[in-house]
């Protein structure tokens, strides 16, 4: 019986299931595809907000969109803080 099962391909994942899984991952990546310009704008705005509250090392900021093979996508930001501003927040 096992021979027949193997012969007819019964022990593999069905190709429909494979397609479903691949499609999900492809779309996840497509939908989070972000242009370098957009990432640059995002970076500038994040810096604007953060500098109201703290002094940061702008040269060492690293912001990127992390896509692994799984379904998750993460915005990863590494922002070195030099010092936290005290007292009044300067809001222009």
């Amino acid at each position: 019986m096992d021979f027949f099962k193997k012969f007819f391909g019964g022990d593999k994942d069905s190709s429909g299931q494979v397609a479903k899984d691949r499609l999900r991952i492809v779309l996840m990546h497509d939908r989070t595809d972000i242009t370098p310009q957009l990432l640059e704008d995002l970076r500038d705005e994040i810096i604007d907000v953060l500098t109201k509250y703290m002094e940061i090392d702008e040269k060492k900021i690293d912001i990127s969109l992390d896509k692994d093979d799984q379904r998750a996508v993460a915005l990863v930001a590494n922002i070195p803080v030099i010092k936290i501003k005290r007292g009044k927040v300067d809001v222009n």
Binding site: S14, G16, K20
Partner: peptide, 15 residues
Amino acid sequence: VQDGDMLAKDDILDV
């Protein structure tokens, strides 16, 4: 679709 070898209607609608 019955044999599991094609994306089903709901698979497509889900995504």
